[in-house]
Amino acid sequence: MALTVTLTLLEGFLQTIRLFILTLLFALPLGLVISFGSMAKAQAVRVPIRFMIWVIRGTPLMLQLLVIYYGPGIIMKSNVWGSGDTGRFIAALVAFVINYSCYFSEIYRGGIQSIPVGQYEAGQVLGMTKHQIFFKVVLLQVIKRIVPPISNEIITLVKDTSLARVIAVYEIIWKGQSFIKSAGIIWPLFYTGVFYLLFSGLLTLLFGFVEKKLSYFR
């Protein structure tokens, strides 16, 4: 029994990890684009972007999943997400990417705006271009400052992936819970917690390592 449960949970965990990795892959860069938008001088760019961030951060991810999955079908009378498991997974991924890129964008914005203006001015009087100042002077300092809040957000993402079950993406908790009905046992559900703990433990070690790597300067 233990083996069957472990294998079934691993299958669900694979789905969890897939959602986790793909979300990061898209949301980390997209967040940077959104953060530039939220700092744009042009109001026509800045205001709508800030509005979107407010909506996304101000409503539950669970609600966003439901709206993104069911919304297009109700409004356009067509299923844009495709059918079956893949369609639901893509809808979940889109919802996660939108949600997390908004959170990331605010972390990036905080990091970028915390760099003293003197760093930019020093680069300017040394004849550096805007591009060189951003990539050679500012970027690494921003990364150093955002590692702690970003790692916090990423560890939250590990656990948030379980929300995808609301549109029937069969992630690990769904699989664990299924044993209650099929076999009348509850321990597989608790067992899922071990997977989360091990994985977030691994991430904690990884981010600790990155922080240490960047501790050579202040």
Binding site: P116, Q124, V125, G127, L140, Q141, K144
Partner: peptide, 17 residues
């Protein structure tokens, strides 16, 4: 044009990394 001048700041503004 700016390279005709150099500027030393009150707060140094060295690049920390």
């Amino acid at each position: 044009r700016r390279l005709h001048f150099g500027l030393v700041f009150q707060s140094f503004n060295l690049f920390p990394q």
